[in-house]
């Protein structure tokens, strides 16, 4: 029986990851709960006045989405590393950088996508003007995919380390900053009535670059972590 083609193998991996995620539905809720709680912190910290909150809303929503993505990025490869499946993945004949895309795709579907769809609720809580909701969801859809890809690089480098949790944030937060800049800029543009298109276009360009280059770095990172 010949080994499945790379694309088919990727789809099989994606189904496997989604099946694993569905087996623990509560864990899918964790990033969303984190998002809700941190968004609720800001009115407590900055005062409930709708005016001030509206001013901060785009930044707060984006920073919270970024942090919840960071939290879940660490676990993308860790469970497979612990029970030895990651070693088998490295030995698979299919190209590793495509298989890794399946892991990141599953991670995005279970965290980023849901976050983007849920974010309008929290935007209204922070009194974000309704005109900006569309831009918010669009920028989060593209942005969280980008964050998952970059987070995957950090995860692949720290998967072998016992105390990799804190380290991953130091490694990849600097790489998250351009995404935050253009993501919240898109929402702010929509708030002040300007077109959010150009910022979303730049986010899209970054996403394409990340889809092309991040898997290579992740594959190299995994091979190094497994070899250590």
């Amino acid at each position: 029986m010949t080994a499945p083609a790379a694309g088919q193998f990727c789809l099989r991996l994606l189904r496997r990851q989604l099946l694993l995620a569905v087996r623990r539905p509560v864990e899918i809720g964790n990033p969303l709960l984190f998002f809700a709680m941190v968004v609720a912190l800001f009115p407590l910290g900055l005062g409930p006045a709708p005016g001030t909150l509206a001013g901060f809303a785009s930044g707060v929503l984006w920073i919270t989405a970024l942090l919840s993505n960071l939290l879940t990025s660490d676990a993308v490869f860790r469970s497979d590393f612990e029970d030895g499946s990651l070693e088998q993945l490295l030995l698979a004949p299919q190209p590793l950088f495509l298989s890794v895309l399946a892991y990141i795709g599953a991670h995005w579907l279970t965290t980023g996508l849901l976050l983007a769809l849920v974010s309008p609720v929290f935007a209204l809580m922070l009194n974000l003007s309704t005109a900006a909701l569309g831009a918010l969801v669009a920028s989060l859809l593209i942005g969280t995919a980008l964050l998952s890809l970059i987070g995957g690089i950090g995860a692949s480098l720290t998967v072998g380390l016992k105390r990799g949790g804190m380290l991953i944030s130091l490694l990849i937060l600097p790489l998250y900053m351009p995404v935050l800049i253009f993501g919240s800029a898109a929402v702010q543009a929509a708030v002040s009535g300007l077109p959010a298109g150009p910022y979303l276009a730049i986010l899209g360009a970054m996403l394409c670059l990340a889809i092309a280059l991040a898997p290579l770095a992740m594959a190299a990172g995994l091979r190094i972590s497994i070899d250590a």
Partner: peptide, 18 residues
Amino acid sequence: ALYEAFDNKEAASKACAV
């Protein structure tokens, strides 16, 4: 920080290179 986090220094320098 990444270099210090690895015990095996050979893998550490490879990870830092990436």
